[in-house]
Design a protein around this nucleic acid. Structure first.
Lengths: 249, 249
DNA sequence: TTATTTATTGCATACAAATGCATTTTTATT
DNA sequence: AATAAAAATGCATTTGTATGCAATAAATAA
């Protein structure tokens, strides 16, 4: 009896009885329990069943929701993005980068805003697809799976053809000298293209990103029209940024 | 009796009665109260119920998430797609359309499969972005927000340049004369392009789609290599489809 | 074909999990 | 505060599991 046959038998039995017991299978198939256990582990790793102590059961119905995106310090981020809502106007063409701050922003966009939004972030697109009045365009390409954004030349090509009124760029790091910097090269390129494509550039980030740097430059501070943080615009921490001429919300 | 079964029993009982009592369960399952308590504590730590003095009660309804995608008759769909898993091979280039059946399929793709998958469905991309070994390419364009898929010329252009080994197409309707048909014109066009781009065409759908029609044609039955339904391949309902030469899984 | 490698299987052994019982601690109720 | 029920804790026993190893079967190369 081939292994594949055995697996088929086990899966059939599992559907019939909702469960299988290691010892029963060993008896029925005339094999050692070891072999059965190895089979069950193999099927488990393929997510075809769930191995449990003594046998296996069908894959659990609940299937943990993949679509839950955890947002750290959501309250703080809400405070930031609420300020940025004042920058929105009807009929704008908007580009949004990824990042959890932008995701929170997307959640809070008023239901009556009519606008066209380009994004390359999967969670942001999911969020905006719930919005009744937004024309949503997803910028396709190869997915960077952990960040759930598309990257690469396809993205650059599309972005560079957009003529947007405003773009909202998340920030990994920002400081006076280098301006915006990113940990990933590819993301930095995409953000450069976003900035070129937009009349107005807004960056939202929490204050712990201030005065930090990453390897890949995105743009000088002077390219930014507006930055939005959790701090009061007059906060001492923002002194140098104020001097650079960027508008602080 | 496996522990998993017991937990299942407890959860069922909990839904029926809104509560469970330690001593009753011990009696009903013929186990010591200690074991029941350990079970209840375990389920509590998994947030599946709330342990209280003397037993356990239901956990308060968890908040509905925007990202929750409701799948009707998920069990039936699982049965369908499980059959289709046998069509997957390492190193295939795959195109997947949208639809909840395909979403269920995406969930069940074994973790060790290495493949490249193109899709234009947001939920499917979210799902596949969790998969460790799949190269995922999202096909961008204007979002059709209710279906959470991209549509339009951008999609067609990308799809028509793909050379795929296999495509998985959801079906709105299928019948002998017209073959696959769709309610939306744009989706029908995209699906046509998918079929052209793929060596092998697979369509998965539940049997209630059989012998129904929609306004926009996608393809004749003969263009399909394989169809997968919840029915047994030899079911009388599939008689005419068998005659058409399409392989039925 | 034969030789070599690789995968599969069963066994022995050490290890971990599950369970019930006795005992102590905690909790709810009067 | 007193009491009875429930829960926690430590322990012994049973049962299931992981691991290395050897024998065998299957696949691949020469």
């Amino acid at each position: 009896m081939l292994k594949a046959e055995r697996h088929q038998y086990i899966m059939t039995k599992l559907v019939e009885d909702q469960k299988v017991v290691t010892t029963d299978l060993a008896l029925a198939l005339d094999l050692s329990e070891d072999t059965i256990r190895r089979d069950l582990n193999e099927l488990d790793s393929k997510k075809l069943l769930e191995k449990v102590y003594g046998g296996a059961v069908q894959v659990s119905e609940k299937s943990a929701n993949i679509f839950d995106v955890y947002i750290s310090q959501e309250e703080q981020k809400k405070q930031i993005v609420r300020k940025a809502l004042s920058l929105l106007r009807d009929d704008q063409v908007i580009i949004m980068s990824g990042g959890s701050t932008n995701l929170v922003f997307a959640k809070l966009i008023p239901a009556d805003l009519k606008a066209t939004i380009y994004t390359y972030s999967l969670p942001i697109a999911m969020q905006l697809s719930q919005h009744p009045n937004i024309d949503l365009i997803f910028i396709g390409g190869k997915m960077q799976k952990n960040a759930m954004v598309t990257i690469g030349m396809d993205v650059i090509q599309v972005v560079s053809k957009i003529k947007a009124d405003i773009c909202f760029i998340g920030a990994s790091s920002i400081n006076i000298k280098q301006g915006l910097t990113e940990i990933g090269y590819e993301i930095s390129i995409v953000k450069k293209a976003m900035i070129e494509a937009s009349d107005k550039v807004v960056s939202m980030f929490s204050s712990d990103k201030l005065d930090t740097k990453m390897p890949h430059g995105v743009c000088e501070l002077t390219k930014l029209n507006t930055i939005v943080t959790d701090l009061d615009p007059n906060d001492a921490q923002l002194e140098e940024y104020r001097k650079s001429g960027v508008f602080i919300l």
